[in-house]
Each structure stands twice: as C-alpha cells, then as structure tokens.
Design a protein around this nucleic acid. Structure first.
Lengths: 149, 149
DNA sequence: CCTTTTTATCTCGAATTCGAGATAAGTATA
DNA sequence: TATACTTATCTCGAATTCGAGATAAAAAGG
C-alpha cells in the first residue's frame, strides 16, 4: 500500500473518530435534558414523532426511530403505562395498531419540546449558522453513502 | 420569540438530527465489520486502545473508551475469557490492575485492524478528502463546545 | 376457494450498559 | 498514629436493546 493510500485511510479513520466523539457529546447533552423530564431518548423520540406527525401505525414508528420491532413494543408499553400514549386498533386492518398521544402526552410535549429545542440550540452553539449549513450538507452526503452500503 | 430565533433553533435541531443520523449510519457499518470478527464495538475499542497505546491500567481504559467502571469489568472479563487480554496487578499500587494484549490478542489485531481501517475508509467514501478535513475541523468545534457544557 | 407468502405485532431470553454501593488500598490531615 | 478522604476495581440488580420465533391477519397465486 502506498504512502498516499495509508494517509487517506488515516484521514478517514480520524474523521470517523471525530464524528463519533462529536455525536456522543451532543447525544449525552440531549439525553441529560430528556431524562430530566423522566423519559429516555427512545421514549422521547417516539413522543416527538407522534407530536409532529400525529397518529402512526406502531410499525412505522420503528422505521422512523430506527429500533427493532421488539423494542417498539417495549417502549410503547412504557409510554402507555405512563398514560402519554394510547393504542387504537385499525378498523380496516386487524393486524395494525395505531399509537397516538393522549391529552397528557400532548401537554407534556407542549411543555418540554420548546425547552428541548432551546437546549439543543445551546449545545450546538460551538459552530456558526453557516458552519451548521456546511455540516448538514457534508453529513448528509456522508450519511447517505454510509447508509447505502 | 422572534422569527429569526425560531429559525436559528430549527437549524440547530436539523444539524443535530443530521449529525445523529450520519453517526448512526457510520456506526452501524463499523459494528457490522467488527461483529464479523466475533467482537462487539466496546471490545474492539478496548483492544484497539491496548494495541496502539500498550498496557493500560483498567481505570484509564474507561476514560478513553468512555464507559462506566462497571462496564469495563464486564468487557475486560469477556476479553480475558477469549484470551485476547490478560490482567496484571500493579506491583507498586495494589489497587491497580493493568490490562494488556496477549499474543493472541496482538495477532488478532494485526489481522483485523487493517481490514477495519480499509472498511471505514470505504464507509467514509461519500465525501472528498477536503470535505473530511472540513468535517474534522467543524465537528471538533462542535464536540468541544458540547463536551464543555 | 385453498395454499403460500407477506406483514404487523408481540413474547421471550440473551447481551450490553449503567448506577449504587462494597471492598480494599493509598493519601492527607489532625 | 488514628481518622478521614480519595481512588481503583468489582458485585449486583435494573434498564434497554436486540434477534429469533410465535401468532394472527391480509394478500397473492393457482
């Protein structure tokens, strides 16, 4: 392997490391915020999806939040116990169950989502708006390529 | 809240989302590669640390790999059972235990690390070298700020 | 129709991570 | 020295996630 190839691989590895570290640091902040409201990140992600997109078949939740079907059941169970979410059987397809926010769930998200968005804005305060725009563009390319392998 | 502030927060949230997705996609590829060698990501990270930095006190491993002390014990136990790693008590401080690669562990890393580096290089193939350099700079800033909160 | 395949949800057990606390050893202080 | 604080590792139980497989319903193919 040539010197150039070695250096190219090292640059990729370095990028991987820095990406992982940055994502970890940001994720940690997000989790800290979310836990203060008595939720874990997955629970929050599910509530956020329903909050913004409305009622969803349980299976679609797994697709968007990127967790296994067995984990969805677990998370939806927990949110249902907390009364933030309710299940409703689909009238036309008896395999399907919809999940939607209860009034309590909506109230909760009205309360905590703006705070969460503000907190995330603070967390991302290390880069300018232009830099965020660059990051979005570059990470989209990076993510699309990695996701297509 | 003004329109500008709202849009600024939305941009931050978008950046957060794209960062998370990109990191997730890349991490998934890394994990897939690592699992093919019978390891999980944490085990690999520990082996990699010892491979590049040599023998380390167990406690330092937790700091660099960013896992809780109780998790280190678990991972080191597993690697010891697989005979890739051995514990050695520190002669001068009886609280401390060093972990180091066995010959088998070194052989394994000689075998799989170059392949892993190549695979990661492929995974990061969606962006040019200049873009990687930009990403490193931007994500360092982002990660440093988030990590200091 | 009847069989096969696909789809949606759930159950169960294993793997991994964490936090709290135990233990034991080193360090500092009165 | 005796006492209190700090540090390093480990134990234990809980939380979370996954994969494999069960169940039931819908869709597709003959």
């Amino acid at each position: 392997m040539s010197r150039e190839e070695q250096e190219a691989e090292e640059l990729s590895l370095k990028t991987f490391t820095v990406l992982t570290r940055a994502a970890q640091a940001v994720k940690k902040q997000a989790e800290e915020d979310i836990r203060q409201h008595g939720l874990n990140p997955t629970e929050f992600a599910v509530l956020e999806l329903l909050y913004h997109k409305g009622e969803q078949p349980i299976q679609k939740i797994g697709g968007k939040v990127l967790i296994a079907s067995s984990s969805i059941t677990y998370v939806v169970d927990k949110l249902e116990k907390k009364a933030y979410l309710s299940r409703r059987p689909c009238p036309t397809d008896r395999r399907v169950t919809y999940a939607s926010l209860t009034e309590e769930g909506t109230d909760l998200m009205n309360e905590i989502f703006p705070k969460h968005r503000q907190r995330m804005h603070d967390v991302l305060g290390g880069v300018t708006e232009d830099e965020k725009t660059s990051l979005i563009e570059l990470m989209k390319k990076l993510g699309m390529h990695a996701g297509s392998l």
